[in-house]
């Protein structure tokens, strides 16, 4: 985190550099006025404090037109300068380079899903090659979310029903945080993803490996379930390591006895798990909110079976 401990524009992306430059420019102006006004305030307060035993004889000063003009005009000019600088960079940030590769981003409570041009879909992890401009075309499946990469100084709300976009030009390899910046419900603060920027050769190798895995095809049901779980973003709400998130963990879920909000206790067998996918809010585990979306219709029966097979492996 170079920012804001050093006054140097971050070079991790094109926008980060430009935005930081504007930031430093405003900081300089704001700093000047900060020192000026606070300095005068404190100086006057000390200099003109009432001294003991001295009769107060203050001058009858009611104003000064020249001064009023000065402190209207000079700040106005500086404000226009700030506006113009901020505007120029903003326009640049909103105008994608024509050769930008397009990636579809789908937000849903509480997962990010990224779909690459080759058709692969990955949840909560975005990999980009270094130096390649990318345009993210974003839409939400439910409420408004906010796509935010602090290191890139880039942010855009993601709306249901209409596309918004953001374009990036990564300039340094590394791993960066992606946050949801627009409050979207219970799991809002856990709706995080990772941006991994890789040098071109590594990126190509990664893509090839992923495609090969996909073509290898014949997956076992449990493997297929794992892939489904990841692409549907199940990991946004359910952990597989035993820690509770927005929803209960899936570790050791199969065959375990769970207590419901009704106080009733049931065994999490195939039927319970199927129902939890299709009618998630009918039988909610105690201590959790009834907020899971239903997958009825969006998951086929064999996909549900695959997911259950996957859950059986999570011991």
């Amino acid at each position: 985190m170079p920012y804001p401990t050093t006054l140097k524009a971050s070079e991790v992306s094109l926008a980060s550099h430009d935005v930081d430059a504007v930031f430093i420019f405003i900081l300089a102006i704001a700093g000047f006025f900060f020192v000026l006004t606070q300095g005068l305030l404190i100086y006057f307060a000390i200099r003109y404090r009432k001294k003991k035993g001295v009769e107060e004889a203050t001058p009858y000063i009611t104003g000064n037109h020249a001064l009023e003009v000065v402190w209207i005009v000079i700040p106005s000019l500086l404000l226009v300068a700030i506006f113009v600088y901020g505007l120029t960079v903003f326009i640049k940030m909103r105008t994608p380079l024509p050769n930008a590769a397009e990636i579809q981003v789908t937000a849903s409570q509480f997962t990010w899903s990224f779909k690459y041009p080759d058709g692969r879909s990955v949840a909560n992890e975005l990999r980009l090659p270094l130096g390649q401009p990318v345009k993210l075309i974003m839409i939400s499946r439910d409420v408004i979310h906010g796509f935010f990469i602090p290191a890139y100084r880039q942010k855009q709300d993601v709306l249901p029903g209409s596309y918004t976009y953001l374009w990036l030009l990564p300039k340094q390899a590394g791993t960066y945080d992606i946050y949801c910046s627009q409050y979207c419900g219970t799991g809002h603060s856990l709706m995080r993803a990772t941006l991994i920027v890789m040098p071109q050769p590594q990126y190509q190798a990664w893509v090839a490996a992923e495609l090969q895995k996909q073509q290898a095809g014949a997956q076992s049901p449990a493997e297929r379930g794992k892939a489904l779980f990841e692409s549907a973003g199940g990991g946004g709400c359910h952990s597989i390591d035993g820690s509770p998130k927005v929803g209960p963990t899936l570790k050791g879920i199969f065959g375990s006895r769970v207590t419901l909000t009704t106080g009733q206790s049931v065994v999490a067998d195939e039927e319970y798990l199927r129902e939890s996918l299709e009618e998630p809010n009918e039988q909610v585990v105690q201590g959790f909110q009834p907020i899971m979306p239903s997958f009825r219709g969006s998951l086929k029966q064999d996909e549900i079976a695959a997911l259950i097979a996957y859950m059986k492996t999570l011991k």
Binding site: V19, F23, I26, G86, L87, F90, M93, F148, Q154
Partner: peptide, 16 residues
């Protein structure tokens, strides 16, 4: 407020 009023910097600090 200047940082929030300027378009480019608002993009970063908005909702933070």
């Amino acid at each position: 407020g200047l940082f929030l009023g300027a378009l480019a910097t608002d993009v970063h600090v908005h909702d933070t």
